[in-house]
């Protein structure tokens, strides 16, 4: 069942190529604003880079959430799926996995490039991709809870940010801390393990909360 749902998501995503590129463009452009806004001085940029990359990735992910349920909710297929007897947690998990594959993964692949452009220390470049790789699953799943709670609402966007962003803070702290440690040549395996732990924790529990929320939002 998981495979059927995931294949459906992948097929749908593949037919909306422009929407896939949008978060990526957003990520690149916002990251490029910092040299203009703060200072093009390489040493200053190198100091800012870990935080800038992480915050930009986080905002780009937030931006992509708009499409998380919207099309399926608008044409009623989301309601059909929930009514069909498939566990709502499974639907949510598929959505989150698809969201991760199509928005988070491209961000992770591009992130070393931004690291180079922001003059991040070479030892920090790999850490950017690694911390994002381990941190983004947790973010996608927390976002799934927020989206499931706000799916039926007309002005859910701002509310979603209020619900989800506070819960992103621990992930952001450990992610940026890991990159910072790596850029200074220190070991950052502790931060990586923490990010992995948060991802495992959310993968195992968040789908249930989000599934229950989805049922509530759809008025079951």
């Amino acid at each position: 069942m998981f495979r059927v749902l995931l294949l459906r998501e992948i097929r749908l995503m593949a037919r909306r190529k422009s929407e896939l590129v949008n978060p990526l463009m957003f990520f690149l452009i916002v990251a490029m604003l910092f040299p203009f806004g703060v200072s093009p001085e390489p040493t200053i940029l190198a100091q800012l880079a870990p935080g800038v990359i992480w915050v930009c990735a986080l905002l780009a992910l937030m931006l992509s959430l708009d499409g998380f349920y919207r099309d399926d909710f608008d044409d009623g297929s989301l309601r059909q799926m929930v009514m069909s007897g498939v566990a709502p947690a499974l639907i949510v998990l598929t959505k989150a996995v698809a969201n991760w594959l199509f928005t988070a993964l491209p961000l992770i692949i591009v992130s070393p490039l931004i690291g180079v452009m922001l003059n991040l220390h070479p030892s920090g470049i790999a850490a950017v991709a690694l911390t994002l790789l381990l941190g983004t699953p947790a973010m996608c799943l927390i976002a799934a809870i927020g989206m499931s709670l706000t799916v039926g609402l007309r002005r859910g966007g701002i509310l979603l940010a209020l619900l989800v962003l506070p819960l992103y803070i621990p992930i952001l702290i450990f992610g940026a801390m890991g990159v910072n440690a790596a850029a200074m040549g220190q070991s950052y395996s502790g931060q990586l393990l923490f990010l992995a732990a948060m991802s495992v924790f959310t993968v195992s529990l968040a789908p249930w909360a989000a599934g229950a929320a989805l049922k509530v939002s759809l008025g079951e």
Partner: peptide, 10 residues
């Protein structure tokens, strides 16, 4: 229900 779920998650 939605508010209760959010409270539990938090």
């Amino acid at each position: 229900k939605a508010a209760a779920i959010l409270a539990i998650v938090g």
